[in-house]
Amino acid sequence: MIGRRLLQILPVIVLATFVVFGLLQLVPGDIAVTLAGENATDARIAQIRQAYGLDQPFFVQYGKWLWNAAHLDLSRSYLSNEPVLDQILHRFPTTLLIVSLSLTISLVVGIPLGIVAATRPGSRLDTFVTSFASLGVALPNFWLAMILVATFALNWNIFPATGAVALSKDPSKALLHAALPAFALAAGGIAEVARQLRSALIEILSSQYVRTLHAKGLSPTAILWKHGLKNVSVTLLTVVGLLVNRLLGATVVVEAVFAIPGMGSLIVHAAIHKDFPVVQGVVLSMVVIVICMNLLIDILYAVLDPRVGRA
């Protein structure tokens, strides 16, 4: 299974990085001018362009990058001359902390809400959860992020407004810095988890096999916690998979609002300056993460649902 998956991954990586590289050409500005510094002569700029291979055709530049990447060499940043891999490894923990924190919040809050709503469909609590969920899905992350900064950081001074601290340096400070961005991202996640869980669980609880369980004399509690949860876990897994993908994308915007030095700000900064190796490196690592995540989820599917083939 894993071998076949790897074969499917390669075209995805090539396609994603190629498209991003193509789009990068559309960004106005010229990195050679930036690198040459102020008041540089045309000759100096041309020289730099040649040194970095920027004068070569589009396909050649891309092909070279791909060739190196295939040999695990992600090149160096044009701007800082640092190895791209080092930059990514340095930034990644910050983004990972925010994404996993907001995923945790989404699940810890969303799952109980979904269960409570599903077991009392039509009740006031259910109506509340459902409307909260529609709101949460509709709210834009960046808007929520700005509201959170204004309220909790600037007005009340409970949380820091910007920046990040490494988890390895000071865990409690790191969490404090990650809290607001994680909450800004989690609102949509909570809503999505609660909504999907509710509808899947309602369907399960009104299914024929649950009727059989009642007919056998099981209590509603046993039915919900044993049979309901095991059956709904498959849906939950799907939701988590989609959520991780979405959080990784949304973190770019939220990191910008909170001025957090994570993967998001790294790629934004690099894209603005046409720092091609950095952009490609980040895209590549995101694709790899998403694919690994999906692979993990597929493996868990097979564990949770006996109908999924183990071939």
Binding site: S207, Q208, Y209, R211, T212, L213, K230, N231, D305, R307
Partner: peptide
């Protein structure tokens, strides 16, 4: 329907 009357994951 014995298929839908039995819990598929147990």
């Amino acid at each position: 329907e014995p298929m839908s009357a039995l819990d598929p994951v147990f």
